[in-house]
Simulated scan of single mutants.
Amino acid sequence: MDNVAVVVDDIEAAIAFFTELGMELEGEAQIEGVWADRTVGLDGVRSAIAMMRTPDGHGKLELTKFHTPAAITAGPSAPPPNTLGLHRVMFAVDDIDDTIARLRRHGAELLGEVAQYENTYRLCNLRGPAGIIVALAERIG
């Protein structure tokens, strides 16, 4: 897998959010032209992208802000965790409580609560940029 793309309405806020999670901004670009239209399957594509890289360099998240055509919301703006389709992105963290506190400063909202799975993990789900669900996992065992 090369990357997972997330369409956002505020790319700078999304960059700040994922940087707070420890990701690094690899690069930014403006995307437009016939090749973009053909690739995406839309006419008149003009978008900004930011490629975020995990610290180990193995995972990437592409943040995309569509200027034209404008992004649309399909269904509820904050779909519940049992919605069909791409569900969430999970990040391993060293300190889940500290990470939650830092992400709240970027608008994250905790869904449910932090729960412990056996003696192995502390886990939670947060609502992040553009309403996506971001899961956190802290290994404890």
Rank of each mutant, 00 (worst) to 15 (best):
E26F: 09
E138W: 06
L25W: 03
L42N: 03
G44S: 08
V114P: 09
R139I: 09
L84M: 15
L84N: 03
A71E: 04
G85A: 08
P79R: 01
L123R: 01
I96R: 01
D97I: 09
A5E: 13
E28C: 03
N82Y: 06
D95I: 04
D94N: 15
G57V: 10
H58V: 00
R127A: 06
H87W: 05
G41M: 14
L111M: 13
W35F: 08
G57M: 06
H67G: 01
L86T: 07
T64P: 01
A92F: 08
C124M: 07
L61R: 02
M51Y: 05
W35R: 03
H87R: 15
R46F: 13
A5I: 00
P79W: 05
I132D: 06
G22R: 09
I132N: 15
A48V: 10
D2Q: 14
S77Y: 06
D98E: 11
A29M: 10
A13F: 11
A71H: 04
A137C: 14
G75K: 09
E20T: 15
G131H: 11
A70I: 14
M23Y: 11
A71M: 11
A137F: 09
A135F: 00
D2H: 14
P81Q: 12
I140H: 06
E20P: 11
R38N: 03
D56C: 01
S77A: 12
E62C: 01
D10L: 13
D9W: 05
A92W: 10
I11E: 04
R139G: 10
A78Y: 13
L103Q: 06
E118L: 13
I11P: 12
G85I: 07
V7Y: 02
E118F: 09
E138V: 07
E20S: 14
P129F: 08
I132Q: 12
G75I: 10
T83Q: 08
S47V: 12
A74D: 14
F17H: 11
T39I: 15
E113Q: 10
G22C: 02
G75N: 11
S77C: 05
R53G: 00
